[in-house]
């Protein structure tokens, strides 16, 4: 498996296992988020006199968040593309862009939450808000974790360059980042669009 056509991150048995293990972990993450979605669907109409989704969601803000996250998924893809061309600078730059976009997304999401709280929708208001904030919060916590994690990986990249180990770590982090984008697509569709239209 060490032929020169194999990407660097697959060139040791251990990194192959790390990547496979991470895919298995993503399987668990799919189950985790689908549980959050299932609970949300069960509770979404139980507003207990508090605001419902269509009362508080703002399409424009949500669309901007969506585009930011979609773009960050694209730039992290470009980062891995650079990595496979052994372009350390490109990798670093695209990853930093990804992180900045991630931070922008978080900034917007926090503002969104503050807005909801002002509208009288706190996590303690109703079954709906509990499920809503927990689903969104779990995604947001994942994004936060991803930003810190990738920052630490970039420190390692600067110190060690693109090696079998650093490249596999960054590849795994990029899988994680794309996955968060996938989760967001479902949140956008089944929480926001559905909440505003139904």
């Amino acid at each position: 498996m060490t032929s020169h056509t194999t990407p660097l991150e697959y060139q040791s048995e251990q990194t192959q296992m790390n990547i496979l293990g991470f895919w298995v972990f993503l399987g668990a993450e799919i189950v985790l988020f689908s549980t959050l979605f299932a609970s949300y669907f069960v509770l979404e109409h139980n507003t207990a006199g508090g605001p419902a989704g269509q009362d508080i969601f703002i399409l424009k803000d949500v669309l901007i968040e969506t585009f930011i996250l979609l773009t960050s998924s694209f730039t992290s893809g470009l980062a891995i593309h650079s990595m496979r061309n052994h372009d350390k600078k490109g990798l670093l730059i695209w990853m930093i862009v990804t992180l900045l976009l991630g931070a922008g997304f978080l900034y917007m999401e926090i503002n969104e939450f503050i807005h909801y709280v002002h509208e009288g929708a706190t996590i303690q208001t109703s079954g709906f808000t509990a499920a809503f904030f927990t689903l969104l919060g779990t995604h947001g916590a994942h994004v936060t974790f991803g930003i810190i994690w990738i920052s630490l990986l970039l420190v390692q990249l600067v110190r060690r360059g693109i090696t079998v180990k650093t490249s596999s770590k960054l590849f795994i982090a990029s899988l994680y980042w794309h996955f968060l984008d996938v989760v967001w697509i479902f949140i956008f569709t089944f929480v926001y669009l559905k909440g505003m239209v139904m």
């Binding site: 509770l43 207990a48 508090g50 303690q124 079954g127 509990a130």
Partner: peptide, 14 residues
């Protein structure tokens, strides 16, 4: 711990 209502019927939990 945080007073949410996932499982409280009165506040729309189940």
């Amino acid at each position: 711990l945080f007073g949410t209502h996932f499982f409280t019927v009165a506040a729309g939990g189940d």
